[in-house]
Design a protein around this nucleic acid. Structure first.
Length: 111
RNA sequence: UAAGUAAAUCGGAUAGUCGCAGGUACCUAUUACUUGGAUACCUGAGGAAAGUCGGAGCUCCACAGGGCAGGGUGCUGGAUAACGUCCAGUGGGGGUGACCCUAAGGAAAGUGCCACAGAAACAAACCGCCUGGCACUCAGUGUGCUGCGAAUAUGUAUAUUCGCAGCACACUGAGUGCCAGGUAAGGGUGGAAAGGUGAGGUAAGAGCUCACCAGCGCUUAGGUGACUAAGCGGCUCGGUAAACCCCACCUGGAGCAAGACCAAAUAGGGAAACAAUGAAGUGGCCCGCUUCGUUUCCGGGUUAGGUCGCUAGAGAUGUCAGGCAACUGGCAUCCCAGAUAGAUGACUAUCUAAAACAGAACUCCGCUUAUAGAUUUGCUUACCUC
């Protein structure tokens, strides 16, 4: 899990990122990116009810956060990032998610 | 050993690295409170956290008050803060048994319904059985009359007797039809047909009488009670209340986005209408209570911000005492998640077969539903051995 200063917390901010950010999609995730020009990046993970019950949603979100935490230092530019999990992400292994995350980040020009 | 039955427990473990939330201690930066950062230690999802079905605490609406309506519960006793929950029993049903299931008050307060079938579904005569009357047919018997024949008597005619045939009447029996009545034993229909079986009885039948059984009522005994047992009585009364209804008991509404505080803001205006027998709070209606001008339009403005509520509680564990038990009480020890886009994760190694259902959101007690697998205990029924 990330510390609180690396999270996006307000509903308004989510709305703003959905509206103004760049949309990049991978195999397991869809990412909305918006440059923020501050000292660090901030992340938000969204798991909708389509993914399954609460246990499945929680596990997917935690795996994605683990991916973010372990790869945060590689990022060159700072941005606000919202990651929306697809249904296929529920059963995906950690290293597959990591590969997909790095692919998407490269596509978005963040690392 | 196998099959079953009832209950209880667990529901991945261990080690390492990195990481998250809360608390405590200490250091440090900014410091009026405060806030941020570092380090160490401790704690960190479930048996159902789920469905949100029942109940309660808590909060606001009046200190939640009265009546009507509506809703709920429904064998008895107990437990509990309370319940539609639990425990112990009673009645009924199922099982060889351990055991399981059971919305289980009232149908002589009233109303409704009982499809189809059937004569009839609430107090019933279709068929059948029996009795009586009338009509007709047949048979038999008796009497009378007529005819014929025979015998006897005497006076070639009459009388008497007998037989046969026909007619009429009466009686008896059988059959058919109609009418009046008695019958609920039998038939058929149905989930259900007015207690069941047997014997007596009768014109035929019937609780009409008797015995046993079932039902109803009463008495006595036992039990707090549901009820049970024994005896007696009069002889019998359909089902349905998860149909209305009656009876007894319970029941105000909304819910932590409750609600409280802080910041910011609801500003200040214009026009029209109605009005103290008014309007709102008040979300079933009336009363009562509280507050007071209310509503519409024009124009202007607009945060699901922060703190609390928020976890020490009908609390957990152990033990002792009471109780068949649910449960209650005493003592000792302990503090055991409190997030707010939402904390439990990732990777590696080992262990068996490589794990099911599934994630707290104010709290608690229950119920219901989902659940791979593992373990333990009591009991029952079979079979084998001693």
């Amino acid at each position: 899990m990330l510390s609180r200063k690396f999270r996006i917390s307000k509903k308004k901010e989510y709305k703003k990122i959905y509206k103004n950010g760049r949309r990049v999609s991978g195999k397991f995730i869809i990412v909305f990116v918006m440059r923020n020009f501050s000292k660090n990046s901030r992340f938000g993970v969204v798991t909708s009810r389509k993914l399954g019950n609460a246990v499945k949603r929680n596990r997917t979100r935690r795996k994605l956060r683990a991916v973010i935490r372990q790869n945060m230092e590689r990022m060159k530019n700072y941005a606000d990032v919202v990651i929306v999990a697809k249904k296929s992400a529920v059963d995906a292994d950690f290293y597959l998610l990591e590969k997909d995350f790095l692919f998407v980040m490269r596509k978005a020009g963040l690392c």
